[in-house]
């Protein structure tokens, strides 16, 4: 009995060392521990070599296996699209209905599968995930969620989202936004994908912000954020600027508002355009740096344009293609 366990252990060990060998990680291509185990007993070496050559021998069917796998992938994607179209049909309904529909789908499917949620320009939506976490999506946003037994993953593919993560020590929650990766156990935080930097703002709890560079290394932690801190993560520079932030301004979108404090008009326009199908455009270059302070109700573009016109001496002219041009008013 004892000997049998020993042999099973050896087979198990051999498999785990072959897995180690194939990692593709050059740091452990030479692993002294593995080599010690290998030369310790001829039966170890034999078990290792047998499994290794069994696996390497499979290379000769590599092309066919890869071909079949990729066909399966394509068919799976086509099926997923069909499902998504079905879900998307509901997303234009009230948020509550979306939640109900999504919960029905995940109960019906049973297995963990990535599910995507989307909002169009000017829309907002609230999603209750099966683990008890709640996602709030801002305008023009897309996320994909995959809840596995050991880990929870959400990818922010576009836009901005607020995460209210249900605490679960055994199931870390990861948010991927471009090259920014955020890891939490249970917190409230906001993530926004930007052109030059991704912004993570933490309302409560502790958030680890890291970055995966290329496809080779593990995620490098850039910074840890506490409640009240915000990181502007520049992935090209692999660095983050950490500041305190104005909670009211960052969270204004949750109530359909956008708040600015001494923000240059050019940035305000860029930010507001996330919400509008007919974009604003600064026609007088001299206006770009005009400081804007105020809170706008972004649910109605006309009201926003009126407010800009009266408070900042601007004149808005609608171009034939719908673009709204902002001019300085002659005084």
């Amino acid at each position: 009995m004892m000997a049998m366990n020993k042999n099973q252990d050896r087979e198990e060990q051999a498999a785990s060392w072959v897995v180690d060998l194939f990692s593709g990680d050059n740091r452990i291509n030479k692993n002294p521990e593995r080599e010690a185990w290998y030369s310790e007993d001829a039966r170890n070496a034999d078990a290792f070599d047998k499994l290794k050559s069994l696996v390497e021998n499979l290379d000769q069917v590599g092309e066919q296996a890869l071909q079949e796998e990729w066909e399966r992938e394509l068919h799976a994607e086509a099926d997923a699209r069909k499902r998504q179209r079905w879900i998307a049909g509901f997303s234009s309904l009230a948020a509550g209905l979306v939640v109900a529909a999504v919960m029905t789908v995940s109960m019906w499917v049973g297995l963990p599968e990535p599910v995507s949620y989307e909002t169009g320009k000017g829309q907002r939506s609230t999603i209750a995930l099966a683990d008890g976490s709640v996602l709030h999506l801002n305008t023009d946003t897309r996320v994909t969620a995959l809840l596995e037994d050991g880990e929870r993953h959400v990818t922010l593919e576009r836009g901005e989202a607020f995460f209210d993560v249900k605490r679960d020590e055994n199931r870390p929650f990861f948010v991927k936004a471009g090259k920014t990766q955020v890891r939490v156990l249970g917190t409230e935080f906001n993530v926004r994908l930007g052109a030059s930097a991704n912004i993570v703002s933490v309302l409560s709890g502790l958030v680890s912000v890291s970055q995966k560079s290329g496809d080779e290394s593990v995620a490098q932690e850039i910074v840890q954020l506490h409640a009240g801190e915000q990181a502007e993560h520049d992935t090209a520079q692999q660095m983050a600027v950490v500041e305190s932030f104005d909670e009211g301004a960052v969270m204004a979108w949750r109530s359909g508002k956008a708040a600015y404090h001494e923000t240059p008009l050019s940035l305000v326009v860029e930010d507001l355009n996330r919400y509008f199908k007919k974009p604003l455009q600064i026609a007088d270059a001299s206006l770009a740096d005009l400081p804007v302070t105020g809170t706008f109700n972004v649910t109605d573009q006309n009201v926003v344009v009126d407010a800009l016109e009266s408070a900042f001496s601007l004149m808005a002219v609608k171009r034939i293609d719908g673009v709204i041009l902002l001019y300085a008013r002659e005084t």
Partner: peptide, 24 residues
């Protein structure tokens, strides 16, 4: 397995693609 053996991908790269950890 297929990504590692036939697409020459490291475990780190596979982890990113499958959205799981390297230990998974």
């Amino acid at each position: 397995f297929i990504m590692n053996r036939f697409e020459d991908k490291t475990y780190a790269a596979i982890a990113v693609e499958l959205g799981v950890s390297e230990s998974t």
